[in-house]
Structures are given as structure tokens and as C-alpha cells.
């Protein structure tokens, strides 16, 4: 690769995105390995199982697809995956105001990589100008997408070597909890978060993780009402 092209590529990488995104990649390692293992055990052909990483790119929904495919009806597989992904509609609505000044190509590309981790980081960058936000978001998207493809392949090949006893599955929760704390800049956000926690705990037994949606919606409503009652 010519050095001018290489340096041009490097200058497009957002260092803040790399610094903030790397810790969130760590927990993806065991998840990728588990997914690879499940692809091997799935009734889906291995190529189709791997293709879920390339075209769906949503860990939990992929896991549902590869474990359910062939054991229940096609409609059940698709509906289950959609229910798991329903929280993305809220992510999409929340980042829409950040896309106002973005070109159409970016608005079309951005949703493809709007995963939990990228939402959690991008939604805190409301103060960025359009160009800086785009570079930050694309750097994160490329990092997470490419890493996920590599992890899926490694998982298919070496899926059973990573010890589950490390408990690394807890890592995303720890980092998301930290991010929530920094998002709480006032009473409404605090009420939104606490309500979401309580309602999600109460509705934990609803099928297909719908408790997550019920809890999140209850949190949004509570925060919305709390902000409306604040003195102007």
C-alpha cells in the first residue's frame, strides 16, 4: 500500500474512538467464541451461521438464530430475533437528532453498526460537530465489525478453549453501568435509570427478554414525566 494512502487512512481513524472502544471489545471475545461454538452445533450450515456475523451483526439475535434454526418454525426464529432486537428502535430514535447534519450515505450506513456498545458511546457525543461525530462513529463501526468477524471465525475453529470460569460475560454489564452513571446529569435521567432497573427486575421472566423492553420504556416514561415537572 502506498505510504500516502496509508497515512490518509490513519488520519481518518479517530483516536478517542479507539481508546474508548477497545475496553468494550474485550467482553466480545468470550461472546464471539460462544457464538462460534454454537454455529458448530447449529443445524444451520456453517457458512450460513458465519454469514450472520457479516449481515446481521447483532450478537444476541445471532445466537438466537443459530440455536433455534431447524428446531422451531422459520417464523418463530425470525420473530424471536426481532423481539431481541426491538431495543434498537429506541437506539435509532435516540441517535436520529445526531444525524441531522450527516450526509445520506452515512445515514444509510450508520444503522448497520448501531450495536449496544456503539450506541452507548455515540450517544454521549452530542457535542461533537458533524464531521468529528462521523469519524468517531465510523472508527467504532469498523473496529467492532472487523473484530466480530475475526472472533466468529476463531470461535468456529477454537470455540471450546476459553475458560468460562473467568466470568467475562459480566464485563459488558460493568461497563454499561459505568456509562449510565456518567449519563445521569440530573434528576430525570436518574429517575429513568432507576425505574428501568426496577421494572426490568420485576418483568425478568417475560419471554424472549421482553422485560428489557418493558423496563426501558417504563424508564423513558418516568424520566420524561420527571423532566416535565422540573421548574424551567
Amino acid at each position: 500500500m502506498p505510504s500516502s494512502t496509508r497515512s490518509s487512512l490513519l488520519t481518518r481513524i479517530d483516536r478517542d474512538a479507539v481508546r474508548e472502544g477497545l475496553p468494550l471489545l474485550v467482553p466480545a471475545v468470550p461472546f464471539g467464541f460462544i457464538l462460534g461454538l454454537e454455529i458448530n452445533n447449529s443445524l444451520l450450515p456453517t457458512e450460513a451461521g458465519f454469514s450472520t456475523s457479516a449481515v446481521i451483526f447483532a450478537g444476541a439475535a445471532q445466537l438466537a438464530v443459530v440455536t433455534l434454526a431447524g428446531t422451531v418454525s422459520m417464523v418463530t426464529v425470525v420473530v424471536t430475533a426481532m423481539v431481541i432486537n426491538a431495543r434498537h428502535i429506541m437506539y435509532s430514535a435516540a441517535v436520529a437528532p445526531l444525524m441531522t447534519k450527516q450526509p445520506l450515505w452515512f445515514r444509510l450506513l450508520a444503522p448497520f453498526v448501531l450495536i449496544d456498545q456503539i450506541f452507548a458511546l455515540a450517544v454521549t457525543k452530542r457535542h461533537y460537530d458533524a464531521k468529528k461525530f462521523r469519524r468517531y462513529y465510523l472508527t467504532l463501526g469498523a473496529m467492532f465489525f472487523l473484530t466480530w468477524q475475526c472472533l466468529t471465525i476463531l470461535g468456529i475453529v477454537f470455540g471450546d478453549v476459553l475458560p468460562t470460569s473467568l466470568g467475562l460475560g459480566l464485563a459488558p454489564a460493568l461497563m454499561f453501568a459505568g456509562i449510565v452513571v456518567t449519563m445521569i446529569t440530573g434528576r430525570p435521567a436518574a429517575i429513568a435509570a432507576v425505574t428501568a432497573v426496577v421494572v426490568t427486575l420485576i418483568t425478568l421472566d417475560l419471554p424472549n427478554r421482553t422485560g428489557l423492553l418493558v423496563g426501558a420504556l417504563a424508564g423513558v416514561l418516568a424520566g420524561y414525566l420527571a423532566e416535565g415537572r422540573q421548574p424551567q
Partner: peptide, 16 residues
């Protein structure tokens, strides 16, 4: 929409 971030991520922590 301002409440979506804290609410969804808090709910996600619980489910994780």
C-alpha cells in the same frame, strides 16, 4: 429521547 440512553442501558445491565 433524552431518557432513552440511561433507561435502555440500565435495563440492559439488569438483563445481562
Amino acid at each position: 429521547l433524552r431518557q432513552v440512553g440511561p433507561a435502555v442501558l440500565a435495563a440492559l445491565v439488569v438483563t445481562f
